[in-house]
Amino acid sequence: MKRILIVDDAATVRLYHREILETANYAVEEAMNGIEALEKALQSPFDLYLVDINMPKLDGYGFLRELRGQDLPQAPAIMISTEAQANDEQRAYIAGANIYLIKPVKPDRLLTQVRLLLGDVYR
């Protein structure tokens, strides 16, 4: 089972994404901020990261920069943002995100992205 880390400070959002991903048979773990996410990734790298931008302690950009700076197997990251700033998209890619989605992400859309990034085919 592929492991996905949801990094978001909002419990509701984590729950929301968790339910989507678990229905598609992914093993989901959660982190409430960038620091916690980084600790988890260092312990055991994930197959995909779902990253919020605004978080306390270490935000999404910071987390991705740190993650990409580690000597680890690197996995794709989806950055999830509110529509607030158009500039975020570019910043996200520079920091190391691979996909940039805008909240709220519909379940089927999220799953499409996740499956493509992980190379999982619908069967």
Binding site: L67, R68, G69, Q74, A75, P76, G96, L117, L118
Partner: peptide
């Protein structure tokens, strides 16, 4: 963190390939 970023992009492409 450029190497990590390249690896991640490669990982994403690998998924797409599969």
């Amino acid at each position: 963190w450029l190497p990590g970023r390249i690896k991640a992009a490669a990982a994403a492409l690998a998924g797409c390939l599969r």
